[in-house]
Amino acid sequence: MTDPAIRLAGATIGYGDVAIVRDADLTVRRGEAVAVLGSNGSGKTTLSRGLLGLATVLGGTVEVLGAPVGRLRERGRVGYVPQRHTVSGAMPATVREVVGVGRLPRLGLFGRPGARDRAAVAEAVEAVGLADRLADPVAALSGGQQRRVLVARALAAEPELLVMDEPTAGVDAASQAALADVLARVSAAGTTLLVVTHETGPLAGVLTRAVVVDSGRLTYDGPLAGAGTAGPDCHHPDEAARPPVRGYRLDQPRPAPDAVRLRHGSR
C-alpha cells in the first residue's frame, strides 16, 4: 500500500495525436481527496480520462494504484462517475441493475453475483440515500437521484480510487449536500478521491487539496483554500481573456485553442 494512488511524471495526455494535457507532474497519496479545477476546455476532464484509460497517454508516465494505466487488472479497483446528468440506456433498468454493473469487474469473466455482491449493491444504494428505490426503474428518478445512482454504481465496486467528473453540475442543492455527505464517508474509509469540478463550493468540506489545470498545464497544486482566489477555476472573468472554445461538448472534450500537435511516438 505504499504506492501512491496516482503518479504522473511528465505526462502528456490527449486524443489521437492531439495533446491536451502537457508535461503534468502530480502525485496523489492514498486516502487524499483532491479537486481538479479549471475552466471549460482547460484539460481537467482529459486529465481524469487519462487516469481511466479513456484518453491516450502520449508521453511520460501515468501510474494508477502502482501500475501503468491501461492494465485491466488495476482498473478493476478504480471507481468512475462519468460526466453525465442521467442514466442513459434505451431499455428500462432498475436501480439495482444499474448499480450491480459496478460489481462486474470484481467477478472475473463468467462469475455470477453472490450474496456478498448483492450486499455491496444494497450498501452502495443505501449510502446515496436511495435504499427505498432499489427496485424502481431509474427512469422514474429525478436527475439528481440518477446522478446518485451513478455514484452508487462506482461505490458498489468498493474502489480504492474514485474518480468523479463534475458530480455536482446540474444537481440541486439538497442533492449536492447529500453527495458531500457520501463522499465524506467514503473518504473517511480511506478511499482516494479525485473530483473534477469547476465549483468547489458544495464539496469544500470534503476535498482538501486542489490542482488547477489551465490550458493543459498544471498551474496550481496545494490546499483547496488557496486555489479559489485567482481566476482559473472561476471561468467567467477568464473567458474574456481568450477566444471562446468553439464546438465544446461535455462528453467529448476538444483541445484548448493553443494545444500542440504531437506526432505518434515523437516523445
Binding site: G53, L72, Y80, P82, V101
Partner: peptide, 21 residues
C-alpha cells in the same frame, strides 16, 4: 455473459474505465 453485455451496451465508456473487456 448477459450482465456484461448489458454493462457494455448500457455505458461503454464506464465499462472501459472500470476494466471490463
Amino acid at each position: 455473459l448477459g450482465r456484461r453485455l448489458y454493462a457494455v451496451s448500457d455505458d461503454e465508456e464506464y465499462a472501459r474505465a472500470v476494466g471490463l473487456p
